[in-house]
């Protein structure tokens, strides 16, 4: 980071029809938001300067979120509130900026910090298995291994989902068919929530249809503990409101 610049972590939510706007287009969208909001964002050098901006964890098309993050570098700042207000005046319906925190010097960037993400999962046609979700999740998590085949462009790899599932429960947040799932979201071990649900459906021996899932990311987390004993905190727990 160049001298005199202020690194700011911005938290935002994404709902409604905006769930169909993909990650790259959301980046382009925010570039234009910063220009419209006349925020003093820093630019890279060179013939085609671009805004210095990095996103935490890309959100899949079709998902909503209450906990998206991006880090930007600013040349000057009035206050956190001013940033939030100015950006929200420029938002498309469905997008909202929730907070803007100045990061301490040397804080690692949003993308490198991401360790986990929490998701609420609902079912389009309100689905509860006969034995109830509590029992199903208990059975599912009592398996020693949850092996899946991850198909990438280059190869197929066997992967055990279980160590990457940090929390899986019926959510008290909502009704009986809303689940809460917290999984690894780091660049090396990212787990998509639909992958877990697909395995659950397999165990129940019912056909899986990903269109049935309504997924909202609850928040994105960093790990302040160790790999063996993780301790997760939301990405906006560092930095301060100015």
């Amino acid at each position: 980071m160049s001298e005199g610049r202020i690194k700011v972590r911005i938290k935002f939510s994404k709902h409604g029809v905006m769930r169909f706007i993909g990650h790259l287009d959301i980046m382009r969208y925010f570039q234009k938001v910063f220009r419209r909001a006349e925020i003093d964002i820093a630019y890279s050098q060179g013939f085609s300067p671009h805004q210095i901006m990095s996103f935490a964890a890309p959100l899949g098309v079709g998902m909503e979120s209450d906990g998206e993050y991006m880090d930007v570098e600013l040349c000057s700042i009035n206050s956190s509130e001013d940033i939030v207000n100015r950006m929200n005046e420029q938002m498309a319906d469905g997008m909202q900026v929730l907070s803007a925190r100045v990061l301490p010097d040397g804080a690692s960037n949003a993308m490198a910090s991401v360790a986990a993400a929490g998701y609420y999962i609902r079912f389009r046609d309100s689905f509860v298995p006969p034995q109830g979700w509590r029992k199903v999740i208990e059975d599912f998590m009592s398996q020693e291994q949850i092996l899946v085949t991850k198909v990438t462009k280059k190869s197929e790899i066997q992967m055990d989902l279980k160590p990457g599932i940090y929390d899986f429960k019926v959510s008290s947040h909502d009704c009986t068919d809303c689940l809460y799932l917290m999984v690894n979201a780091s660049s090396s071990g990212n787990i998509k929530p639909a992958m877990v649900l697909e395995e659950v459906y397999k165990m129940l021996d019912i056909p899986f249809d990903s269109f049935q899932l309504l997924i909202t990311r609850e928040d994105t987390y960093l790990n302040v503990g160790t790999d063996e004993k993780p301790e997760f905190l939301p990405l906006d727990l560092i930095g301060e409101i100015v």
Binding site: G16, V17, F20, G62, A92, D93
Partner: peptide
């Protein structure tokens, strides 16, 4: 926000669903 004319399953299977949802600035 208004209801979309196309259901999620359609929007998820077509190329560039953003062509059909409106809501632009």
């Amino acid at each position: 926000m208004s209801e979309l004319a196309l259901t999620d399953d359609i929007l998820m299977q077509v190329e560039k669903p953003a062509r059909y949802i409106g809501n632009e600035i």
